[in-house]
């Protein structure tokens, strides 16, 4: 077969016979230039563009504080807050509080992560597991987890246990939902292809199902980290004698808005670091994914 014929075979039916000849030539349309991407932008580096928003906010805040529009009693100025933060770091209060809080988050994340992923695997991979686990988890999920704090205090006392349990609870639900959805979202045609390649059930799970569920798991991890910090704030408001939440509670007693903002800033920075960790993980683990990355 020659190339010509093959292309011809694909071509739409010839319609020229029935079409009347055009009487007058077409007017030429107005042309506009397509501007190459490399020609524009690239003037400002990416990190600088990202820093613009926070910096503008800080400057505005400082200006409002200095001019007296924002009373010091309501919110301290960024300058004061920086000084207070420096003091808290210097006398060791802030580092030790952060260490305690980080430990709580780490333990809660680990316990909740193990529980959430294990449940998701059990119900995602087997229909029996789905029938037994999924309905239960979906039911419990609709309970607002902050509402169980009083119960946790009654059950677990006022030590570390209720705080960690609260974090673990929030983490477990998010991971469960996203990992389960990730497993069930794996393309059935890829599973079939894996079967045709002779993969065993274990091989299918390892080479097809779990990698396919990874994007969902990453989304779950992102939500989990955010929830972990949130649960930490709630947990540490309850009878804590150290940690960031305790520091904030104490500052409230003495109307120290600067200390409160320092703690909030620490939460924000820790959240930012957590996000950075997830982003790095995604870049390493999901580099195969053909997704839109913005323009």
């Amino acid at each position: 077969m020659t190339l010509d014929q093959a292309v011809h075979g694909q071509a739409p039916p010839d319609v020229s016979a029935g079409t009347p000849a055009r009487a007058e030539p077409c007017p030429s349309p107005e042309l506009s230039r397509v501007i190459p991407v490399s020609g524009r932008r690239r003037s400002v580096p990416r990190w600088l563009r990202r820093a613009v928003g926070p910096v503008v906010l800080l400057v505005l805040w400082q200006v409002l504080s200095s001019t007296g529009v924002l009373p010091v009693g309501m919110l301290a100025s960024p300058g004061t807050i920086a000084a207070t933060g420096g003091g808290l770091v210097a006398d060791g209060t802030l580092p030790s509080a952060m260490l305690v809080s980080l430990q709580r988050v780490a333990v809660g994340l680990l316990l909740g992560g193990v529980a959430g992923v294990a449940l998701a695997l059990a119900s995602g991979l087997s229909r029996l597991g789905e029938d037994v686990i999924d309905v239960t988890v979906q039911m419990l999920r609709s309970i607002p987890w902050v509402g169980v704090i009083p119960l946790f205090i009654i059950w677990l006392g006022i030590g570390e246990a209720p705080k960690i349990a609260l974090i673990a609870l929030g983490v477990a639900f998010h991971l469960y939902l996203n990992v389960y959805a990730g497993i069930r979202g794996v393309d059935a045609r890829l599973v079939e292809a894996g079967t045709s390649l002779g993969l065993s059930r274990r091989g299918l799970i390892r080479h097809v199902v779990l990698p396919g569920a990874l994007p969902g798991a990453m989304t779950g991890l992102r939500y989990s980290l955010a929830t972990a910090w949130l649960a930490l704030v709630f947990g540490e408001q309850v009878n804590a004698d150290d940690g960031l939440g305790f520091l904030m509670n104490q500052a409230r007693e003495f109307f120290r808005t600067d200390v409160i903002v320092v703690c909030l800033a620490v939460y924000a920075i820790l959240g930012l670091i957590a996000d950075l960790v997830v982003r790095t993980l995604e870049r390493l683990l999901l580099q195969w994914r053909p997704t839109f990355t913005g323009q």
Partner: peptide, 25 residues
């Protein structure tokens, strides 16, 4: 026996050569 489907059905998370040997004993 081996199958080639209409869509290539390569595992997107495996590099091409790992896709080729996937499932071999």
């Amino acid at each position: 026996k081996a199958v080639a489907f209409q869509a290539p059905r390569l595992m997107p998370w495996k590099r091409v050569w790992r896709n080729v040997v996937l499932g071999l004993p």
